[in-house]
Design a protein around this nucleic acid. Structure first.
Length: 556
RNA sequence: UGGGGAUUGGUCUAAUGGUAGGACAGCUGACUCUGGAUCAGCUGGUAGGGGUUCGAAUCCUCUAUCCCCAGCCA
């Protein structure tokens, strides 16, 4: 295995530069989720970068919930977020913080800015504020309340915070520049009145800081050196810096990178929420969802997800990663770790006419050819077996080298069998296939050295376990699902066949003891994992991803 | 027509004035008790025009295209 080049990117280079010239001498980052939804693979990229940069430079990463909007946030998501970060393999130690921990300090800093003449209370209505703001091409104009005295501003701010005014009647604004080309600098709102109960501070506050007035200062308070975020915040950086400078506090560096996008996938929180709430999927952890919890249930491994993120790279180009790269990473990891088992998804009965009626042999099967330490197991073999429907063709096409009349194939780890006939019902449906076996080929080798081109999987009819198998396909039927025609929505791009549930699949008996989350390769089919719904009475497997299938490709 | 970003094969990403390279995808072939894996090979790229230079993806300049910003969301 060749040594991969040490991954580098523009953020790592910036950090190295800062460390070299003394701008900082330690590295601290933070992952700042808003507790208003489940984490998805886009967050996994942010997590990987935040924790990865710190690890690389021997620094630390804080987990900080950005909980400045009680109307949208909920405690429900806090624990789920922690579980997902841990699953990815990262840990923040005891540094679990909340922006709401800093509300008192933030209030003090707001007072400071008022005293410095850098902030004022505005009585304009939300609509008026919008119209005074100007447009992208026209400058805004000053609010008539912009030049109130410091005393009046202080008094009003105090009364705002003590609940004297209803929601929406006043805000605290930074006094910057209403004619700035950067709209974020046109006297941005710092505090709004929200008579809402906060999941942590309860009813203590009825004014809450805006993101811009909370995020940078929270970073500063925590000694965060690198505030890594997505490109959307690039236009906010001047404001981030402005507050820090005016307050005269520790100055972290914000660096922006492009967010992750993926083909056939939608990552907008709003859209994901619609999928869940309108029942297009079965919850946030539906294996078709790009959520971390969904991918976990699907059987993706953290190693695979992280490797995908690393391979996709970190840059400032807006890009769309090919979902096949993710699938490659999943197969690549599962190939190394997943025990092989035999399972038949669409069973077809195979009768070995010359095999003793009541004999049941135990044949040895390798657990993982990629991993010698995985050992082997015994699987029962008998006269009546199940094979895959696809593995028999009455009239074989060119280059089909599975079972067909007169053809000989190997039953994996079993015997060579030669097809002698088959039985059809009135509708022409094949009910069972008959064959004879060569007793000398036990284990799958022929003493005379003759070759068979095909090897197929099978399970013993008598010993097989029934299982439910859920096969997933892409949730959307086009690579750019948020591209839809007028009058339509992303929902019109949903793939109607993204879930197939198949009952009465047949799997080898060793699977009786499987537990949810176990990974397997069903030989010749794909990687599967045991679903949360699975029990010994009713086995349920999710197809994580199919094996590469060059045969299917040839037949396209 | 304001401000801020970005443009390298189908996709993602390197090359930091000196041979445009890697990964995924695709295509060949070898090997194989998984039509898997593995191995070998192939196809295909610097948005466009000028300029500087012995030499430009890289520097300058003009143009084009795309993205973000007008929440009391984050």
């Amino acid at each position: 295995m060749s040594e991969a080049p040490a991954p580098t990117n523009f953020i790592i280079e910036a950090v190295e530069e800062d460390l070299k010239n003394g701008r900082f001498n330690t590295v601290t980052t933070r992952f700042p989720p808003e507790p208003n939804g489940y984490l998805h693979i886009g967050h996994a990229k942010a997590i990987s970068i935040d924790f990865g940069i710190a690890q690389k430079f021997g620094g630390k990463t804080n987990l900080r919930y950005d909980d400045t909007n009680p109307v949208k946030e909920d405690i429900e998501f806090v624990d789920a977020i922690k579980e997902d970060i841990h699953w990815l393999g990262f840990d923040w130690g005891d540094r679990e913080y909340y922006a709401s921990d800093y509300f008192d300090q933030l209030y003090q800093w707001a007072v400071q800015l008022i005293q410095q003449g850098d902030a004022y209370i505005d009585d304009l209505s939300p609509e008026e504020i919008r119209s005074y703001r100007g447009t992208l091409t026209e400058p805004g104009k000053n609010s008539p309340f912009r030049d109130r005295s410091i005393e009046e501003n202080l008094d009003l701010f105090h009364r705002m915070s003590s609940g004297e005014f209803p929601d929406g009647t006043r805000v605290l604004r930074a006094k910057i520049d209403m004619s700035s080309g950067n709209i974020n600098m046109r006297d941005p709102v710092m505090y709004r009145i929200l008579h809402a109960t906060h999941h942590r501070t309860g009813d203590k506050w009825c004014i809450y800081p805006m993101y811009d007035f909370a995020h940078g200062q929270s970073d500063s308070l925590e000694g965060v050196t690198y505030s890594l975020c997505d490109l959307a915040y690039e236009a906010h950086r001047p404001l981030y810096d402005w507050f820090i400078e005016k307050l005269g506090i520790f100055h972290p560096r914000q660096i922006e990178f492009s967010r992750l996008n993926m083909t056939y996938t939608i990552l907008s929180k709003r859209f994901l929420k619609t999928l869940v709430e309108k029942g297009y999927v079965n919850g946030w952890d539906d294996p078709r969802m790009p959520t971390i919890t969904g991918m976990r249930r699907r059987g993706y491994t953290p190693e695979a997800v992280l490797n995908f993120i690393e391979k996709a790279g970190v840059a400032k180009n807006e890009s769309i990663a090919d979902i096949s790269l993710l699938e490659f990473c999943v197969r690549d990891h599962l190939n190394k770790i997943a025990p092989r088992v035999m399972g038949v998804i669409n069973p077809l009965k195979l009768v070995i006419d010359n095999y003793p009626d009541d004999l049941c042999e135990e044949l040895e099967a390798v657990n993982n050819p990629e991993d010698e330490t995985a050992g082997s197991r015994k699987i029962p073999f008998s006269k009546n077996l199940f094979i895959e429907k696809d593995d028999f063709m009455e009239e074989p096409t060119r280059k089909y080298f599975r079972l067909s009349p007169g053809q000989e194939v190997r039953l994996r780890y079993g015997y060579y069998v030669k097809c002698t006939g088959f039985v059809k019902d009135q509708n022409g449906e094949i009910l069972e296939v008959h064959c004879t076996y060569d007793p000398l080929t036990r284990g799958g080798f022929s003493p005379d050295g003759r070759k068979v081109k095909g090897t197929i999987h099978w399970v013993s009819e008598a010993k097989a376990l029934d299982a439910e198998v859920r096969i997933y396909d892409r949730l959307f039927n086009r690579p750019d699902p948020d591209n839809f025609e007028e009058g339509k929505t992303f929902l019109d791009n949903l793939n109607a066949d993204s879930l197939k549930i198949i009952q009465k699949c047949k799997v080898e008996p060793s699977l009786i003891s499987t537990k949810p989350g176990d990974h397997f390769q069903f030989e010749r089919l794909g990687y599967f994992c045991t679903d949360l719904d699975s029990s010994p009475d009713h086995l349920v497997f999710n197809q994580t991803v199919g094996l590469r299938d060059t045969w299917a490709k040839m037949n396209q």
